[in-house]
């Protein structure tokens, strides 16, 4: 059985920057437990010598020439922002007052 607790779900949600409400914490605790119990069987398919594959088609060092090409204007880049000013994205305070 999995060891997923409401405490763990709150911790993960905090890492992922999602402010879950209590009913979601309860539901995800149960569902995450079921999903992890189900997927945990993959460890029986492999051993330490099995190589990893992170990408389906092998590619190495995809570079382009270092030349300036047309790109978005500052205005275009800011066009979808919820808030902006002086040519920048405007956000809430980064640090607490303390």
């Amino acid at each position: 059985m999995s060891d997923v607790t409401p405490h763990l779900v709150r911790h993960l949600a905090n890492l992922a920057r999602i402010e879950l409400d209590e009913s979601e914490v309860v539901r995800f605790t149960e569902q995450l437990g079921l999903i992890l119990d189900s997927v945990a069987k993959i460890s029986s398919a492999i051993d330490e010598n099995t190589p990893s594959t992170s990408h389906p088609i092998p590619l190495t060092n995809v570079f382009r020439e270092d030349i300036i090409e047309p790109s978005l204007s500052q205005e275009q880049a800011l066009s979808g922002a919820p808030d902006q000013g002086q040519g920048r994205f405007r956000v809430a305070a980064i640090l607490d007052e303390e």
């Binding site: 993959i42 398919a45 594959t53």
Partner: peptide, 11 residues
């Protein structure tokens, strides 16, 4: 979990 899944991908 994730590390094991990448190995299964090889299999």
């Amino acid at each position: 979990f994730y590390g094991a899944a990448l190995k299964v991908r090889t299999l």
